[in-house]
């Protein structure tokens, strides 16, 4: 049962750290050289980076899950 609490805590830590990376990476990010379209280009790039971060987050979580529950997941 302690594994579940550990996994919850790990998920929470990943959310805090992932949020920090997102703010640091995406917060100041702007592209100015596309005239009136810079808003759309900037947002589109931010979306792509955010999706990339989410994929990395899920991959790390999968590894963590397999590590923490290596005994329990032997069904």
């Amino acid at each position: 049962m302690s594994g579940l609490y550990g996994f919850l805590f790990a998920m929470w830590s990943l959310i805090i750290i992932g949020g920090g990376i997102m703010v640091v990476l995406l917060g100041p990010f702007t592209i100015q050289q596309f005239g009136d379209f810079h808003w759309i280009i900037t947002s589109g790039t931010k979306v792509s980076i955010a999706f990339g971060l989410i994929v990395i987050w899920i991959l790390i979580l999968s590894k963590l899950k397999n590590y923490i529950f290596k005994k329990e997941l032997k069904f």
Partner: peptide
């Protein structure tokens, strides 16, 4: 604006709609 603990907000107008 998406608010994160410790690190503050990030503006993501298009992403937020999604």
């Amino acid at each position: 604006d998406l608010a994160f603990p410790l690190f503050g907000d990030v503006q993501i107008p298009l992403l937020y709609l999604g």
